[in-house]
């Protein structure tokens, strides 16, 4: 790759002030960032890369005061293998485990995973071939084009790309709070397809920690992709059910992780079985609208809701 400047931040402040300097990007695991730079998909080439892995303690995982605290640079592998997370926050462990490939998980971080850019193939085509609306251009090429992997819940800002994160729906379902260098953000409010980003983060703001209250009941994560490894989800779903409440979040079906509120209402307080889960799945995809090539995703989303719920049994 072409030259850029680089710093190893030692503190959060050092990182954010470097980012405030303009045209700088954060690097954590690198597994999304370096691909985007190398294939030159974005309009701008970064002048500086800010490594935040060097901030002491930013990769810690601990449980404190009935709450799981995961540092932004904890790797997906560490999360997937952590016994506490596996037993009490199963949806997160399963989501981390199903992300990409073992190599990516060994380097990729939770912070990076929730901040990654979308995988729309128009957006990702080499050398910014399609200067689409998410990059500040004026149209969405997928809307009328090849959209088999795109949104089934409409467009945001005329873009039908989907959020590809596996851990994001788990964090929403587990009612996580995302702590940044500036503020605390509820997972529900964290994603917003600002142009060109994926989150509500300011340019000089970084995720520092994710906090998850211990769930009352069980949680689960399921994923559908063409291959069991390497692939991004076609649809995934996380559910957390307990105390008569249900929290269910789909992803890869919309620009942002999609809270399946109708499915939550349908299953809350119900006995979990094949029939109730099936009904909740059907409820969850009410209002879904197909594009030219993605009708099948509605059926798969319905199935993913059902299976995530059954996973909480």
């Amino acid at each position: 790759m072409k030259h850029f400047d680089h710093i190893n931040a030692k503190t959060v402040e050092e990182a954010t002030s470097a980012l405030a300097g303009g045209n700088a990007v954060v690097n954590a695991g690198g597994t999304d960032l370096l691909g985007t730079i190398r294939t030159a998909i974005l309009r701008d080439y970064p002048e500086m890369v800010v490594n935040i892995k060097t901030i002491p303690g930013i990769d810690e995982i601990k449980e404190e005061g009935g709450m799981l605290k995961v540092g932004a640079c904890a790797t997906l592998e560490e999360i997937a293998k952590n016994e506490t997370i596996k037993s009490k926050y199963a949806a997160l462990a399963q989501a981390a485990y199903r992300t990409a490939s073992p190599h990516i998980r060994a380097a990729g971080t939770i912070g990076g995973n929730i901040c990654q850019l979308n995988r729309c193939w128009y957006f990702r085509k080499y050398d910014n071939r399609f200067d689409c609306i998410r990059k500040g251009g004026n149209m969405c090429y997928a809307m009328a084009g090849e959209n088999r992997y795109h949104s089934i819940f409409g467009a945001v800002k005329a873009c039908v790309a989907v959020n590809p994160s596996d851990t994001a729906p788990a964090l929403v379902a587990l009612n996580a709070t995302i702590k940044t260098s500036k503020r605390d953000i509820a997972a529900d409010d964290f994603w917003d397809v600002a142009i060109p980003g994926s989150t509500v983060l300011d340019d000089d703001e970084i995720v520092t920690e994710i906090q998850i209250p211990e769930p009352a009941g069980k949680s689960a994560f399921v994923k559908f992709a063409l291959r069991a490894t390497i692939d991004f989800p076609i649809v995934n779903c996380a559910a957390s059910i307990g105390n008569g409440e249900a929290s269910i979040c789909l992803n890869a079906v919309h620009n942002n992780p999609y809270r399946a509120t109708k499915a939550e209402e349908a299953i809350a307080g119900q006995t979990i079985d094949e029939a109730s889960a099936d009904a909740a799945g059907a409820a969850g995809v009410q209002g879904a609208t197909k594009l030219a090539h993605n009708n099948y995703k509605i059926q798969i989303a319905k199935t993913m809701i059902k299976r995530a719920i059954l996973g909480c049994k």
Partner: peptide
């Protein structure tokens, strides 16, 4: 992929400077 500090990771997704 190469082993960095005991973990198999992708060298294409790792900055040398880091």
């Amino acid at each position: 992929c190469v082993i960095i500090d005991g973990k198999a990771v992708l060298s294409c997704m790792t900055l040398a400077v880091e």
